[in-house]
Write a protein that binds this DNA or RNA. Sequence first.
DNA 1: ACGTCTGTTCAAGAAAATTTGAACAAACTG
DNA 2: CAGTTTGTTCAAATTTTCTTGAACAGACGT
Lengths: 163, 163
Amino acid sequence: MGRLMEFWGFRRHMGRLWTILYLSPEPMTTTELAETLQLSSSAVSLSLGELVHWGAVRKTWRPGERKDFYQAESSVWKLVRRVYERRELNLIREAIEAFGDAQRQLDESRSQLGGEERRRVDYMHKRLSRLSAVSKAGERLVGLLVAGRMINPADLQSSEEEE
Amino acid sequence: MGRLMEFWGFRRHMGRLWTILYLSPEPMTTTELAETLQLSSSAVSLSLGELVHWGAVRKTWRPGERKDFYQAESSVWKLVRRVYERRELNLIREAIEAFGDAQRQLDESRSQLGGEERRRVDYMHKRLSRLSAVSKAGERLVGLLVAGRMINPADLQSSEEEE
DNA sequence: ACGTCTGTTCAAGAAAATTTGAACAAACTG
DNA sequence: CAGTTTGTTCAAATTTTCTTGAACAGACGT
C-alpha cells in the first residue's frame, strides 16, 4: 500500500500508516504506530495529520486515556472518490483554464502578425481547442465517477475526433 | 501540461516537450526543442526517448535531412489508455499479489499461535480479503476503461460492502 | 500553579531526484 | 577513410524532497 500510495502522489508513509490501522481491530496510538513502522514521532505526526485531512484516518478517544487513538476509514472506494473529487477534478479544471488563457493570449497577438506567423497561431489555436474538448470530456467523466454514475469512455474518444 | 504530466508520475519535461510538438504544425528537431524550452540536448534526448517509449511522440524523417524529426501522437485518449493499460493495471495486479502473499504468510503462522494472537491474525486475514476484493473490482474497472466499454462505479462500491 | 505527558512545528542534515557537460558512439559527407 | 554532425550515456553537481531531533505549545493531574 505504501508503494501504491506513493505512486498516487502521496507520501509513502501515509500508505503504510493507513494499512497498519486498517489491519488493526483496535484503534492505535501514535506511539504504537511509530514503533511498528520504526518512524520518528514527528514523521508519524506529519503523515497521520495528512491522512486525517484526507479523511483516511479518524481520531478517536478512549474514556480515561490521555493519548489520542486513530482508526482507519475502511471504505477504500470512499477514499478514492474523495481524492478524485478534491484533487483530480481541480487539476483538470486548472488545465482547462490554462488552455483558455493560452488561446486568449494568441488572440491578442494575432492581429499584429501576418502570413506565415498567423497561420501558425491559428493552428495552435485549433489544437488548444482540442485539448480543451478532451479535458472537458475528462472532467465530465471524473464527475460521473465521483457521483457513482455509469461512465462511457467512448465519450472521451469522440471528443477528439477530427471534424 | 508539464504540471499535469508531473502529477501523473512522469517527468515534467515530457509534458512540455509533448505540448510543443502537439502545437507545432510541422515535426521538429531536437535542436529546435532544446532552444524553445531552454534545455540541454541531453535532457531533450532523455525525455524524448521516454516519450517515444510511451508512444506519445513519433520519430519521422525527411528526405535529404540528416537530423531526426519528431511529432506528437495527437490522440490524448489513446495515450491515457496506453498508460492505464501498461502502468496502472500492473500496479493493481502487483498489489493483489502482495495481498495474497500476506495472507499466505498469516496462514503459516496461524497454527503456532493461540487465543488473542490468533484472533488478531484472523482479523487481518479478513481485512486483506476485502482489500483483494476492492483491488480486483478496480482491476476490472480499469480493464473496461482501457477496452472502451461502459463502466459502473457501483461495482466498486459493492465490492466492499459488509457481508 | 507546577510538572509531566502528548502532539506539532521547525530548521538542519540526509537521501533521492534531476540536470548538465563531457565523453562516447553511430551515421552520414566529401 | 577522415572529418562532421547528431544522438546517447554517464558520473558529477545541483536542486529538491524527506527525515529527524530539539524546541515549543497544550492539556491534564496532582
